[in-house]
Amino acid sequence: MTEAVMVPMEHGLALAAILFSIGLIGVMVRRNIILILMSIEVMLNACGLAFIVAGARWGAADGQIMFMIILTIAAAEVSVGLGLLLQVHRRLRTIDIDSASRLQG
């Protein structure tokens, strides 16, 4: 590791935290299921960024391996999500989450 690391770790973590919050707000505010899935993707990628930043601090590959795992997980989640979405669309003709609220807590 050379001393060319110019971004302090806290800044990277702060950026990741901001991205994470944007994703979280997206999940809570959006009504379109595709956009909710995209927001979850943003959250997961924010975690990936945090791992990369942390890994850079320690100069170890752990952070990058975790990022690869996160990528895989995000792909699996979103594939299943899209599959469910197609089923919902086929039966309801809409992807608005409010129309899928027959169950009331």
Partner: peptide, 20 residues
């Protein structure tokens, strides 16, 4: 067509395997 979505899902999955 729904097939596009199916292919897209396969792409997402198999594309990621190359990472490993």
């Amino acid at each position: 067509s729904v097939e596009f979505y199916l292919i897209a899902m396969f792409f997402v999955i198999f594309d990621l395997e190359t990472v490993y």
